[in-house]
Amino acid sequence: MTEPLLRVEKLVRRFGGILATDNVSLAVLRGELHAIIGPNGAGKTTLISQLTGHLAPHSGSIFLAGRDISRFPAWRRSALGLARSFQITSLLPDFTAADNVALAAQAHDGHSFRFFADARKERGLREVAEAALDRVGLSDRAQVPVSRLSHGEQRELELAVALASRPQLLLLDEPMAGLGATESARMVKLLSELRREVTIVLVEHDMEAVFALADRISVLVYGRVIASGAPAEIRGNEEVRRAYLGDQHVVTRHG
C-alpha cells in the first residue's frame, strides 16, 4: 500500500480536563477529498489547527508524505505544501484582495529579505494572484481592500490565498460557514472542480455539500473518530446515526 499524503497517528490534545483530540488516527490518500464531520464541539477545528501547526499536540504524530512534521511550526508546514483556510475568516484586512493572494505566492517563492524592488510590480507574483483570484471568481475585485469585501467574497478569497501557494494538501475549515444558498452552491461547484487538482481535507457542517463532494468521510465525536469510510458506509453506520446525526430524517433526506 502506498504511503498516504497525510497520516495522523494517535493524536492527543487536552484543554484542561477536556480531551479535545482523543487518540485520533487518520489517513488521507493522495487525490481524495476527505471530509471530517461531527457535531459542534467535536474537536474539528482543534484537529485542523494541530495539522497546520497553530496548536501543538500533547502526543501523537503527523506525517506529510511520509515525513514527520509533528514538531514543525506553521510556516514550515506551509512551505512543505500544506495550506489552510480558516473557519473564522482570517485575512489581511488592510491589504487588497490581490495583495493577500500575492503574499501567499511570495511566501513560496524563496525568502523575502528583498528590500528595494517594488513587490507590487513583480509580474510573476501578480500573475499567480490573478490566476488564483480568477479561479474563485474574484478577478474584478482584485484591487478592493479586504475590509470592504462581502463575507462571501472573503470566504472565496480565503480559498484563493490557499490556492496561490500551490499546495499538495488543502485543509478547509468550514468554507461554507455563514454563506447564503447561492454562495454555498458556488462554493460547492468550485470545490468539485478543485478536488480534481489537489488533495483536500474538508471540515464542514453542510451535510448536503459533504455527501455530494467527499470520497471518504471521517466522523469525529467528542474528539474521537467513531467511523471512517465512503459516504454510503457512513450513512449506513448505526453508531454515526446515534451519536451524531441523531434525528434520522437528516440522514434519509440527504440519503
Binding site: T52, G53, H54, P73, A74, W75, S78, A79, A83, R84, F86, S90, L91, L92, P93, D94, F95, D99, L103, A104, Q106, A107, H108, S112, A119, R120, V161, S165
Partner: peptide, 18 residues
C-alpha cells in the same frame, strides 16, 4: 509587505508560510 502583513494578521502570515 511581509512586515506589514505581520502587523495586520500574524496568524495568517504564519499559515501562508512566513
Amino acid at each position: 509587505l511581509v512586515v506589514q502583513g505581520l502587523r495586520s494578521n500574524e496568524q495568517r502570515m504564519q499559515a501562508i508560510g512566513f
